[in-house]
Nucleic acid binder design. Structure first.
Lengths: 352, 352
DNA sequence: TTGTAGGCGTTATCAC
DNA sequence: GTGATAACGCCTACAA
């Protein structure tokens, strides 16, 4: 039974029609008489032919129906972040009408590591690529992709001149949160940032630190626009547990304890609140906490974070739309989303 | 500039070699003299050729380097579940050596819904498919895939005879948890199950309910092996919040309140614990709670769930291995993983 | 409405 | 180490 699988020509022959006719029956691009159609279908059934081979079709059409999504770091942890999940939902939704599905890819590993056989932006049969953030390594492999005329979009990152971006007003938004705290009279404020890099070290930021992640840098800048001297502590990861650890560190010393914490994500904020509770601090009476993202935090009730709501799903959809435009040879446009300030019950006026 | 993109033949011509030679330079499958190699590379550089077109290569090779992962329901919510995330990590890891990446697909929508252009198992250029669970709808589209000789594996589901399965000893494992509670003297026990179906209705199970999800059914059976009459409440989703809601319902009435709750997932267990706390119940003194999965629950500390630890990552890896075997024309074997009982601090002897 | 022809870009095979 | 040849399986003009 190592016999060759049936092709559309086999089917056509069996049905007594031309291959092109059989093709048309399957693609439906051209009207076909009912008689021919059923002849062909019958022959296909007979031969166990289940439709055109997608590989061949994709060569012929020049489209594979696959859009790559490139993450930094391990895939599993990419989905730890609720914002990413929503973004993926939006993206899925937006590429579906293009007849496309999402191929998960990650950052090309640095030279040293086992450069396995894993597929990459350049070896996978993709129609377009969406980058989630853009590390320097990634940036280099981009050229080849663009040289091929494959549309690329970057979400929350900077991939250089030719690449349209979907971004957030991170700095302005974070500044608004800071202003809100300022308005409440807070003066001793600490910022808890997203993870600095892949090493995911949890520690106080130093002046000398060069922050490479755009989101982190921009949100930090926004907070510092209002509180130029606020110390910042980098969490190990944007999770509740990461926030709790950061919270413990930040709130440890009663002498230097801040009256408000600006967290760069809702999950971090949730963790910080938990750390505060551990220490017997009441939120918001003893400590105000702001988040960022505006996602539902599983298990945070009864708190409702004061936070910046970002349109995560819309970001994904927008990326899809940009790709659709580029695939269509229309001019892509970068897009900047604006966060909405949402007042919750985790911030209050500073008590004297 | 609508000029055709350079092909490998163009490069070969420019370099003054045969196309096959140029091909070999890029694939590295055959030794090539240093001189030829650099001639070819130079020509490629010159023409802006960045390597073979993956679409053409995949037609020629008969491999696309793409493995489909089919989820039930929206993608974003698939990743809500930490177990799925770990599984995906394992899968990613296991298919990388195959030179493959993962294409996200979801259940074919039922006839009614907008049957968009979205790619499907049959239209995407895939080398293999991994099903996460197996709904009846899905089962039907499987035939076509298998007819093409595309390897298929199902994780936690039953896709019929020819499809190898990666599964868990759900029933036995859950039974062990129940026996543990029984050993502690618990008699009034309630089971909180995973969501029943897509409607995600939160409610008490009725005898007439026909549970279609294998995992849910098997775990329930395991619990009922020990507590045949234990009432069961279906949560709306396997989340902390879903567990909290279920917990409130289940613990509401002091008269009928159970002394132990068997939750079908760790997240549910975490939520139930939270609900118990709300009601002023102490865990484990007033209420014992068992989970299932053995995943780290973000923000659950200081509790450590008594739970069944499943090797989520290993499941993914196993699925990858099975696929590798099938792609290699070796005989695939179904695999059953065994959960390990882990004693935490959320169960205790019933107090009289 | 159906058939003919040609090529999409690559690579496996085999001879040289 | 290099080159010629022949598919891989399909689809789209275009002609009939």
């Amino acid at each position: 039974m190592t016999t060759r699988r049936a092709t559309i020509s086999d089917v056509a022959r069996a049905a007594g029609v031309a291959p092109s006719t059989a093709s048309v029956v399957f693609s439906g691009k051209t009207p076909v008489s009912q008689a021919t159609r059923s002849k062909v279908l019958a022959a296909a059934e007979e031969l166990g032919y289940t439709g055109p081979d997608p590989r061949a079709a994709s060569l012929r059409r020049g489209r594979s129906g696959i859009v790559a999504v490139v993450f930094e770091g391990p895939l599993g942890s990419a989905f730890l972040d609720p914002v990413q999940r929503l973004m993926m939902d939006g993206l899925t939704e937006a590429v579906a009408p293009l007849g496309a599905g999402l191929l998960l890819l990650h950052d090309p590993v640095e030279a040293g590591e086992a450069s396995s056989e894993a597929p990459t932006l350049t070896t996978a049969p993709i129609d377009a690529a969406v980058l989630i953030g853009c590390s320097p390594v990634l940036r280099s492999s981009l050229e080849a992709v663009q040289a091929r005329g494959i549309p690329v979009v970057v979400i929350e990152g900077d991939a250089g001149e030719g690449v349209p971006r979907i971004a957030l007003d991170n700095r302005e938004a974070q500044r608004r949160a800071a202003e809100h705290l300022q308005g409440l009279g807070h003066e001793r404020v600490v910022i808890v940032t997203l993870a600095l890099d892949k090493r995911r070290e949890s520690r106080w930021l130093r002046g000398s630190d060069d922050i490479t992640v755009d989101v982190t840098r921009d949100r930090l800048a926004g907070a510092r626009d209002v509180y130029p001297d606020a110390p910042a502590f980098a969490a190990s990861s944007s999770t509740i547990d990461g926030g709790t650890a950061a919270g413990r560190a930040v709130l440890a010393d009663p002498a230097t304890r801040p009256t408000a914490v600006i967290a760069q994500s809702d999950l971090l904020a949730a963790g910080i609140i938990r750390a505060a509770e551990e220490l017997g601090l009441r939120v918001p009476e003893d400590l105000s906490v702001t988040g960022f993202d505006g996602i539902p935090v599983d298990g945070l009730a009864p708190y409702e974070l004061t936070t910046l709501v970002q349109a995560a799903t819309a970001k994904g959809r927008a990326a899809g739309a940009v790709i659709a435009a580029m695939l269509d040879e229309r001019e892509p446009t970068s897009l900047m989303f604006t966060c909405e300030f949402r007042l919750g019950n985790t911030t209050a006026a500073v008590t004297t």
